[in-house]
Every structure is written in structure tokens, then in C-alpha cells.
């Protein structure tokens, strides 16, 4: 598992490094482009965790769709590009409490001996086929409801974003 570890750390480094750029960059366009590498790194980690469908979905929707939408949002806004974004400290006390709770949770995850836990050996090789079978048999109704949800989202988005309604 030597190569696995190296690849994992490469993707983790890409994700964390670009996420730091997103947070600390003063230029919102640079931040948005840096988010591309964050999404990509997360997709790589999904692949390593044997979630191939999730990884492809991550690339297709987050990189291909949501990031484009964010960049459009930046480009469509009139006076956001030349304005330097403030990245100062605000709301220090609530943020401190929230961060310490999160840090405690993460520490709990890190120091629990989850590596020794008896996980069933993964026999699943590719998840897309299994997902397709489940969608077409056991979860047929949720699948069709997803279509209705998408329809509602489409009409709602068009209604709100339309210029002259």
C-alpha cells in the first residue's frame, strides 16, 4: 500500500493547498479558480476510496457545473472584481467556539482506533453498475421523484433568475 499512501497524500495536498488559496486569496477570481483544484482533489480521494461513481459525479457536477456557475456569478457582478476582499477576523467568539467543537470532533475521529475496526472486505469493484441496478429495481420511485425534484428546481431557478418576470 506504499503507492496508495503516496497518491493519497498528493491528492490531500492538492485539496488542502488549493482550499487555503480559496480562503486566503484577496482576488475572488483566483479563489474561484483555485476551488477547481479543491474539487478535483476531493474527486481523486473518492477514487482512492473506491467510490468511482461519486468521483465522476464530483467532476461532472461540481467542476463542470457549480464552479462554472460560481465563475459566472463573479463575472456577472458589477463591482466585485476590483474590490479587495476582506479576510480579517470577525465574530471571534462564536467562531472560536464553533472551531473548538469541530476540532474536538476531529480529534475524536483521529484518536479512535478505527484502523483496527473489522470492516468487511470490499468485494465491490465498480459501483456504477450496482447503483444502476438498484435505481431500476428497489429504488425506482425515488428515482422518478428525483426527476420531479429536478423539474421543480429547474422551474424555480428559471423563475427567480429571470430578469423581467
Amino acid at each position: 500500500m506504499e503507492l496508495f499512501d503516496i497518491v493519497f497524500y498528493v491528492f490531500a495536498l492538492i485539496t488542502l493547498g488549493s482550499a487555503c488559496v480559496v480562503v486566503f486569496s484577496k482576488n475572488i477570481v483566483h479563489a474561484a479558480f483555485s476551488l477547481l483544484f479543491t474539487f478535483f482533489g476531493v474527486a481523486g480521494i473518492y477514487v482512492l476510496l473506491r467510490a468511482d461513481f461519486l468521483a465522476v459525479t464530483q467532476i461532472l457536477i461540481y467542476v463542470g457545473g457549480i464552479l462554472v456557475l460560481m465563475l459566472f456569478g463573479v463575472m456577472l457582478t458589477n463591482k466585485v472584481i476590483n474590490v479587495k476582499i476582506k479576510t480579517g477576523t470577525m465574530q471571534a467568539w462564536p467562531a472560536g467556539i464553533a472551531v473548538s467543537i469541530l476540532a474536538g470532533l476531529l480529534a475524536g475521529v483521529f484518536y479512535s482506533n478505527w484502523k483496527d475496526a473489522q470492516l468487511p472486505a470490499s468485494t465491490v469493484d465498480a459501483t456504477t453498475h450496482l447503483l444502476g441496478e438498484m435505481l431500476m429495481t428497489s429504488y425506482l420511485l425515488p428515482f422518478e421523484i428525483a426527476s420531479v425534484v429536478l423539474l421543480v428546481a429547474l422551474i424555480g431557478a428559471a423563475l427567480i433568475a429571470r430578469r423581467n418576470r
Binding site: 457545473g65 462554472v68 459566472f72 456504477t128 426527476s147 429536478l150 431557478a157 428559471a158
Partner: peptide, 19 residues
């Protein structure tokens, strides 16, 4: 922006087509 929003919905639809 409206076109990108509409595209996003059909992007999600394509994800359902793969499995």
C-alpha cells in the same frame, strides 16, 4: 447565468443516465 442554471439541472440528469 440563467442558461448556466438550466445547464446545471440537465447536468444532474446526465449523472442519472450513467448508472
Amino acid at each position: 447565468y440563467v442558461v448556466a442554471l438550466i445547464f446545471l439541472i440537465f447536468d444532474v440528469e446526465v449523472v442519472f443516465l450513467f448508472p
